[in-house]
């Protein structure tokens, strides 16, 4: 039972990180970024390549992947999204789907179609014994890194001037302009932050599930389900939503293996219909 909870929370943290990516992009650009799952996959593959290049320190790899994924985000945002006008909602959705397709097929060309995993000794330390249950280092490191990332993000967003400017841009574009902030730059920075975090989530996922070019869809949609349950404009909500989804998946996965995805999508749809702002989201008046 304890093992199940630990696995559920760890998987859930990963969904939560993906959901935070969705949430950051939604808040800063009001865009639902459908390529999020593919960014996760790219992060996983980059980590595998770095380890192949004999860089085996966990934190160095994390940092390098974060920086590289932020650069990928810069290219995507400045290369495509910032040119499409805000009112072309559907065109923007298609563009994100197209970016996902590019990332996926680039991964096929570079890394092939075979699913791969990180080496076992990538995460240092031995198994922890905890009331008779051995916890592999993969799990406690994933948990630790996930929590650290969220804490760092919250401090960054709420305690630094930089993060406040970013939040203001998200809250009100023209107000940010009036305050002497260049909102375009902060939108790009928020996007880069989101892609970086998603890339790191891709490293944490690789010991639990294999990295393959097809993994994006499942993680992308479940991450979105997490973001919806928590509310798209709430970062802690995204994390709680992620852990909820992770626990549901692990608990029910044992009984209804094939249909667990149906259950998760069903929960997501029901939440969307009855509580479109999620459980932790703010309620906005519809702009007329």
């Amino acid at each position: 039972m304890l093992t199940v909870i630990i696995i559920g929370v760890t998987v859930g943290l990963i969904y939560g990180l993906v959901a935070i990516g969705y949430s950051l992009i939604w808040q800063s650009m009001s865009l639902v970024h459908f390529a999020q799952g593919d960014l996760l996959m790219l992060g996983g593959f980059l980590a595998i390549t770095l380890i192949g290049m004999k860089i085996s320190n966990l934190f160095v790899v994390l940092l390098l992947v974060f920086v590289m994924m932020a650069l990928v985000g810069l290219i995507i945002q400045r290369g495509a999204y910032c040119y499409i006008p805000q009112h072309r909602g559907t065109t923007r959705i298609i563009a994100t789907l197209g970016v996902g397709m590019i990332l996926r097929n680039m991964a096929v060309l570079i890394w092939g179609t075979r699913a791969r995993g990180l080496p076992d000794n990538f995460f240092p330390g031995g198994s922890l014994k905890f009331s008779g249950v051995a916890i592999r280092p993969v799990y406690y490191w994933s948990f630790f890194i996930g929590i650290m990332l969220v804490v760092a993000l919250v401090i960054f967003l709420y305690r630094t001037k930089f993060g406040m400017a970013m939040r203001l841009t998200a809250y009100n574009y023209s107000l940010a302009e009036l305050m002497g902030i260049n909102p375009g730059i902060y939108q790009t920075l928020a996007f880069m932050l989101a892609t970086g975090i998603t890339g790191v989530a891709g490293i944490l996922v690789s010991p639990i599930s294999f990295v393959s070019y097809r993994m994006g869809l499942a993680f992308g949609v479940k991450g979105f389900a997490a973001a919806i349950i928590g509310g798209l404009d709430s970062l802690p909500g995204a994390l709680i939503g992620g852990i909820t989804i992770g626990l549901i998946e692990v608990f029910f996965g044992r009984y209804i293996s094939g249909y667990v995805d149906v259950l998760i999508f069903g929960i997501m749809i029901i939440v969307l219909i009855f509580k479109p702002r999620g459980f932790f989201g703010k309620v906005h008046a519809e702009k007329i």
């Binding site: 495509a80 040119y83 499409i84 065109t91 923007r92 298609i94 563009a95 789907l97 197209g98 970016v99 996902g100 397709m101 590019i102 996926r104 097929n105 680039m106 096929v108 060309l109």
Partner: peptide, 16 residues
């Protein structure tokens, strides 16, 4: 294998 890659680039290009 490059087919879908070019297709994706095409989609994004038309969108932009």
């Amino acid at each position: 294998e490059g087919q879908m890659l070019v297709y994706g680039i095409f989609i994004v290009a038309v969108c932009v």
